[in-house]
Amino acid sequence: MIAAIEPSWYLIVASLLFAIGAFGLLVRNNPLVMFMCIELMLNAANLTFVALATSLGDINGQTAVFFVLVVAAAEVVVGLGILVSILRRRPGATADDLAELKG
């Protein structure tokens, strides 16, 4: 007998994903990995929206996810564009290399 999956399990998974994303963004210094961490954070929010929409029986949370997906796609396009223009000039640059500006 398999126990039914409670809505709270989804929330726990989502908060774990969010924590991994936020932690990874702060400690990793490969820009591409940082992008992936950001995607984890956004998708954690998506999972929360969907799980809560299902448990509330409300459609609004699911529509919210569509907006987030589109926005996240636009963000990735822009982010990769900026990143490519950096890596063209300096192949293999890490976040620590991007330190010309400080003070």
Binding site: L11, A14, F18, G21, A22, L25, P31, M34, I38, M41, L42, A44, A45, N46, T48, F49, A51, L52, A53, S55, L56, N60, G61, A64, V68, V71, E75, G79, A95
Partner: peptide, 19 residues
């Protein structure tokens, strides 16, 4: 990076408010 990080945090907060 900072802007998207902030959006992620904000969106997660919004999902909790919605829930």
């Amino acid at each position: 990076l900072m802007g998207v990080f902030a959006s992620g945090i904000m969106l997660f907060g919004m999902s909790y408010l919605y829930g």
